[in-house]
Design a protein around this nucleic acid. Sequence first.
DNA 1: TTACATGCAAACCATTTGCAGGGTT
DNA 2: AACCCTGCAAATGGTTTGCATGTAA
Lengths: 151, 151
Amino acid sequence: MQIDPIDIVKICKECGLRLTGQRRAIVEVLQQARDHPDALELHRRATKVDPRIALSTVYRTLSLLEEKGILERHIFGSGPARFERADAEHHDHFIDVESGRVVEFRSDKIEQLQQQVAQEHGFEIISHRLEIYVKPAKSGKREAPRGKRAK
Amino acid sequence: MQIDPIDIVKICKECGLRLTGQRRAIVEVLQQARDHPDALELHRRATKVDPRIALSTVYRTLSLLEEKGILERHIFGSGPARFERADAEHHDHFIDVESGRVVEFRSDKIEQLQQQVAQEHGFEIISHRLEIYVKPAKSGKREAPRGKRAK
DNA sequence: TTACATGCAAACCATTTGCAGGGTT
DNA sequence: AACCCTGCAAATGGTTTGCATGTAA
């Protein structure tokens, strides 16, 4: 089951933005991304769709979509920001330190405990990020858990 | 109760490093820090102890101490890395988005759940970071929870 | 036509690095 | 004396920005 496509036409209309070829191309690339690419990689992919796209435009568009809540920007370890579609339901990340691969997961229990701990400290949660840096378990490495995630 | 002081003399001796005035000064500043300062701030403080310290030396020393496991480097949101003494017991952070203040916390339950989730995915945890961006709860803001942390 | 968007290059910011001179052992 | 360490300034890498030009509406 797929998340709704980014409706760049609607976004532009609503916000009084122009619908340019570059924005279309970048959105298309984001749409198809199943990984967590950085700006440079997105630029690489976007130029295949339309060679007339500057890296700065990619950055500008990414910031734009992030503002609109369409995208999430992650900074894993050090290194460039990496982007992904903002999911309806928040999730966290495993980062395989050997391959750089990112795997999403969600634990309602952890979410719930965070809420509880924050409350105990007199805080209200605005957002959070949980990144677990991992390597494949040497033994009993179960292949990808059942279902990509019960989204 | 205070964490053990950084024994820079011992570290240098063990690793064949030189015990310089700069290192002493930076370590002293780190020692006294009760917050999570960035490199520039540490440099500012260090130059008060000894004006002859270059920012690059601060960076070099911080990297050194991080390697030795004495320090932890955090990157909260975007912005410069911020440093703190590596605690015997891992902890996570609340970041007050309004004031920038960082509050430490620890939840064994969360740690445990992470372990469990990682295992389910066939991963072995190398490290993790959990940052909860918060603001003071509007109502019923209980003042700092009992004890700074039951270290 | 008229803003807004883009490309380009320069600016930026945090951090790292090359190198010649200094200071510890 | 030998070699590590430092200061300085320049380089780096990711990202942002100023500005003249291009283009969607």
